[in-house]
Design a protein around this nucleic acid. Structure first.
Lengths: 134, 134
DNA sequence: CCGCATCCGTTCGGATACTG
DNA sequence: CAGTATCCGAACGGATGCGG
């Protein structure tokens, strides 16, 4: 395997770049929120108030595949943002809820949503004007 | 064309889902921020304080390809978050700066970063514990 | 009921080369 | 200097089928 074209150079550049990103700890969290489904799941759990079954979350979010939902919930659990409780009933029961850390994050996300709701018309207007010019 | 396998069903589901998303206007903005480079560019412009040349931004962000940088700047310009000023000198000069709307958003993003910086250790700790259990 | 594994189309994003 | 255009590998994300 004498060919080490893209993969190698990529790896090198990645290390370099990751060290840059690592210096900015908050990027890890931003990257989490960057996920399309994370905010939706977070808000679903937050709006509901109490723990939700897996299928409840799926119904609430309503466009997510179970692959993405499971993946998202796992990631959130891993980061300590949601808790996962398995009750060994006959068909197993699994409940998800926000942890205190998750609720703390939800507050910040809600601020973001509030900003978005308050400024979305300006953004859409700017977008229209920009597109009109071509 | 009797075959309308994935493409068709996909299209149908997408319409359904998009109407769900459309009801939540703030998603548009969240999706913008979801972009990996948007927050970095936003912060670069914000930290610098005044207008920056294209190459200055590139140097500051330091891991972005020119393709992504241009694409990101265009998107931000389109949304009215940054202004793009072309000065027709001999080698053309282009300056980018935050608009008032962009600065307004930056404030919210900074809140998010502050939360992240304040809680990243909890997240990393949770992650380690989770990984330790396997 | 909850979730994992596989397959596969779509999209993202970097490298490179070229223009004004 | 500040882009644009093309190519291509890598990663995302949905559909389906199986397992506990």
């Amino acid at each position: 395997m004498g060919t080490m074209t893209a993969a190698e150079r990529r790896a090198h550049a990645k290390v370099e770049f990751d060290s840059y990103l690592a210096s900015c700890a908050s990027r890890h969290v931003l990257d989490r929120l960057a996920d399309k489904w994370v905010t939706l799941v977070l808000c679903a759990l937050g709006d509901h108030g109490s723990a939700m079954r897996y299928s409840e979350v799926a119904r609430q979010v309503a466009g997510v595949s179970q692959k993405m939902l499971t993946q998202t919930l796992r990631a959130l659990e891993r980061d300590g943002l949601v808790s996962r409780t398995v009750t060994p009933t006959v068909p197993v029961t699994v409940d998800y809820a926000l942890t205190p850390l998750g609720e703390s994050l939800l507050e910040v996300v809600r601020r973001l949503k509030r900003w978005a709701d308050g400024h979305v018309h300006q953004i859409l207007a700017a977008r229209d004007e920009f597109d009109a010019r071509g």
